[in-house]
Design a protein around this nucleic acid. Structure first.
Length: 190
DNA sequence: AACACTAGCAACCGCAGATTA
DNA sequence: ATAATCTGCGGTTGCTAGTGT
């Protein structure tokens, strides 16, 4: 019983997407929307599995994607969210319109992890790795020897012990994502 | 100029939970 | 109720461009 398989994996193309494939997928989704990923490659004339199409669309082709450098504020927000949510990249990405979970994950693994380690913080726990009384000055980069209680890692990086996430961030959590526009787009076209 | 190393990113893989016949 | 499939997620890999020697 059950449903039909996602794809038979026979004769399917893998590896980097070509411009032609991108165009096919983009045109198909913009014109027809997404009802079932399994059918997308078949209907769009692509030798890819639905999973691959979905990934390509979400991570690269979506028109609402925001590309470009990360701001310091964005990085701080990632660190804060990661301290609360852990490696739940999709949850973290929900707070960044136009950014994908894959993009955030990559940025975390290539940049932020190193940044935290450089600052003497464990990327997993967000706590000082050792010598918790020693801090690196955020402004000067110099090490400050302290005898006081270790700061909460996030408060320390962001620069405050009294983070108010509720207002700007909560607005995003509560508000519908722009992505909804495309959902309705699909319904209209089919 | 040639090679080795590193960083960044796109894409794949495998799994878990949700969905459906 | 059950089994098969779909979807989405997180971890990992592999390719490419940039940099150093």
């Amino acid at each position: 019983m059950g449903r039909q398989p996602c794809c038979d994996k026979v004769g399917l193309k893998r590896g980097p997407w070509t411009i032609e494939e991108d165009n096919k997928l983009m045109n198909f989704i913009l014109n027809n929307g997404i009802q079932c990923w399994r059918l997308v490659p078949k209907l769009a004339g692509l030798m890819r599995c639905g999973k691959s199409c979905r990934l390509r669309w979400i991570n690269y082709l979506r028109p609402d994607l925001k590309r470009g450098a990360w701001t310091e504020a964005e990085e701080d927000m990632i660190i804060e969210l990661h301290s609360r949510l852990g490696n739940r990249w999709s949850k973290i990405a929900a707070h960044f319109p136009g950014r994908t979970d894959n993009e955030i994950k990559n940025h975390w693994n290539t940049k932020i992890k190193k940044k935290l380690k450089f600052l003497g913080l464990d990327p997993l726990t967000h706590k000082p790795i050792d010598q918790p009384e020693n801090r690196v000055s955020k402004k000067t980069g110099s090490i400050e020897i302290q005898n006081s209680e270790p700061l909460d890692a996030i408060s320390y990086i962001v620069g405050t012990n009294d983070i108010q996430l509720e207002d700007p961030f909560q607005n995003w959590i509560d508000s519908p994502l722009p992505w909804d526009v495309f959902s309705s787009l699909g319904e209209n076209f089919l």
